[in-house]
Computed example of a mutant assay.
Amino acid sequence: MSGMVHVYTGSGKGKTTAAFGLAVRAVGAEKNVYIAQFVKGMKYSELNSLSKIEKIEIKQYGLNYFINGKAEEADIEAARKGLAEVAEILKSGEYELVILDEANIAVYYQLFSAAELIEVIEKRNPEVEVVITGRYADDKVIEYADLVTEMKEIKHYYKKGVKARVGIEK
């Protein structure tokens, strides 16, 4: 059976959390997992947890958090280097599940194109399951995917001034 391509997108909370939950499930089935975090370069609580699980490897391909700002050349270089590394990882078949966390955001901010992302995924070992997370999924990525889930924000305490909390949002 071939690996599928999932997209978790939308304005709601939970895209990365859903992908990481799938990573834990995959490890429970004795699968190896690679998580590539694009855009993100900061340390998050989930990194502490997942780095303790032997069958999960995580690497960040982001520098600073620029979402409210603008990507700089160094951000673009980091993302493109990451995409090149991920291309090799996907081809190798060493990992049965590869999560491309915030790859949709990387496309949205033009760190690399949707066509480049799809090309890398297209050339993967056919057994590798791929998950792409992040808001603003490009229409081409949505069309390419086998499964697309949209997280829709209905209500969020952030709008009442609650900042991201350690262990919950970061």
Rank of each mutant, 00 (worst) to 15 (best):
E143R: 12
M42R: 13
G82K: 01
K123S: 13
A106Y: 05
A114K: 00
A87T: 13
E122S: 14
A87E: 15
F66D: 09
A79I: 06
F38A: 01
L147C: 07
F112K: 07
I121H: 08
L90A: 09
K55E: 08
A79W: 03
G93F: 15
K81I: 10
L100W: 02
E116Y: 06
E46F: 05
I132C: 06
I58G: 01
A78P: 05
V131P: 00
E122W: 02
I105G: 10
A84P: 07
E30W: 15
D75M: 01
E57R: 15
V107D: 02
A114F: 00
A106G: 08
E119K: 14
A71S: 05
A78V: 03
E57W: 11
K55V: 08
A137W: 00
L100Q: 13
A78G: 07
V128P: 12
L63E: 10
M42W: 05
D101T: 03
L90V: 09
Y61F: 15
E153F: 07
K123L: 12
R135M: 07
I154M: 12
K159D: 15
Y34M: 08
Q110Y: 09
A79L: 11
L50I: 05
G41R: 00
E127F: 05
K140M: 14
I105W: 06
V130Y: 05
V131K: 02
V131M: 09
D146I: 03
K31D: 12
L97T: 04
I35N: 09
T149S: 12
S51D: 13
D75R: 00
M151L: 11
E54R: 15
